[in-house]
């Protein structure tokens, strides 16, 4: 098992090197002169040139790359021109916000989608099956900002059940001392029940928005793979051995059906993490997605670089986790590694 993890890590190394190169080149290819932007609209040509020299932008690309890699090795991602903060600090504070939101969204959608898919598969053509299809289609065809806005309109404006969609905490609270960066966990560590509830309230609507969107792929995948497994020979053997329906479905079918679902989960998670920009905008969520978009609009390349790099690393780590999980569930994978 350990050998497999090490091997997977080694396979990740070349892709990380590739990501470093690509992010560097990509941000250099962005339109707009960074030095001019940095100097401000009133700056003279001379001042711009000075800043260009100061930022090292006058050097050949290869030298710039060398400096970039050196900085990376020290954990420095450069300064953000828009926030005036080091990019590393920005990302450190904003990533947990996005991660908390996405993770919870994924958990909620799994809790709904997986049983839904299983029920749909065990009774194909039934009401549950049709319901599954309708929910999945509706969820995936409504854009997230739309569902987000509808939820805000209904639950905040009309019913007043939800708090104002203004970030991670009510303005009367100050964030808990940072341990994990997840407010739910940090507030529990600090022993502050009120804050836990407050941050949970803030989370409900954006989490629902993400969950509704990601139910579709998970439910459909679960249904399809359950159907395939239920039709297979070993399920027939299990039934012919008189095993109870519960054992057949849970121990025999479900575990086998989970394999493709795990793969889908990884894809959905990484997709959501980057793509929840719109949700973050709607709920004024100080996440990493909105941060990157703002930087991109402002031709601020350091945060964009940092964002892409972070996402790439997360993607690699996530894939590693999924592979390990896969190995835990499926013994055949363990041998091949």
């Amino acid at each position: 098992m350990l050998r497999m993890i090490l091997q997977r890590l080694m396979i990740a190394v070349p892709s990380l090197i590739g990501v470093v190169i690509v992010t560097f080149l990509l941000t250099r290819a962005l339109p707009g002169d960074t030095a001019a932007y940095f100097a401000g609209p009133a700056a003279t040509q001379e001042a711009i040139d000075q800043i260009r020299v100061k930022l090292g932008l006058d050097k050949p690309l290869i030298v710039q790359f060398g400096r970039y890699v050196q900085d990376l090795a020290r954990g420095e991602l450069g300064m953000s021109l828009t926030t005036g903060q080091p990019v590393a600090t920005d990302i450190r504070t904003r990533l947990p916000a996005s991660a908390e939101l996405t993770l919870l969204g994924l958990i909620v959608s799994m809790v709904i989608a997986v049983p839904l898919g299983i029920f749909a598969a065990t009774r194909p053509g039934s009401m549950v099956d049709h319901l599954c299809r309708v929910i999945a289609t509706a969820g995936v065809s409504l854009p997230v900002f739309f569902t987000g806005l509808i939820l805000v309109y209904v639950f905040y404006y009309l019913l007043g059940l939800a708090p104002a969609p203004l970030g991670r905490l009510d303005i009367f609270f100050s964030p808990p001392p940072q341990v994990t960066g997840f407010f739910l966990i940090d507030s529990l560590i600090a022993g502050d029940g009120d804050m836990f509830l407050a941050s949970l309230k803030q989370l409900i609507l954006p989490v629902l928005t993400l969950a509704i969107f990601s139910i579709a792929p998970i439910a459909r995948m679960t249904r399809a793979s359950m159907l395939a497994v239920l039709a297979s020979d070993f399920i027939r053997t299990a039934r012919a051995s008189g095993l109870s329906p519960k054992t057949v479905i849970v121990t025999y079918a479900f575990r086998n059906a989970m394999l493709p679902v795990i793969t889908t989960l990884g894809m959905v998670f990484s997709f959501l993490l980057g793509a929840n920009v719109l949700v973050e905008k709607v709920f004024a969520w100080p996440g990493i997605g909105s941060y990157a978009v703002e930087a991109l609009v402002a031709s601020d390349f350091a945060p964009v670089q940092g964002f892409v790099l972070t996402m790439a690393v997360m993607y690699v780590v996530l894939n590693l986790l999924i592979d390990i999980l896969y190995g835990v569930v499926d013994p055949r994978v363990r041998i091949e590694a």
């Binding site: 020979d233 053997t237 039934r239 012919a240 575990r255 086998n256 055949r332």
Partner: peptide, 21 residues
């Protein structure tokens, strides 16, 4: 009755067993 009184053996034994158990 299944498995206790009447049992079955199938064709293609490898597929007839749960592959991950």
């Amino acid at each position: 009755l299944r498995g206790r009184e009447i049992s079955m053996i199938f064709q293609n034994p490898r597929a007839a067993l749960n592959p991950i158990r």
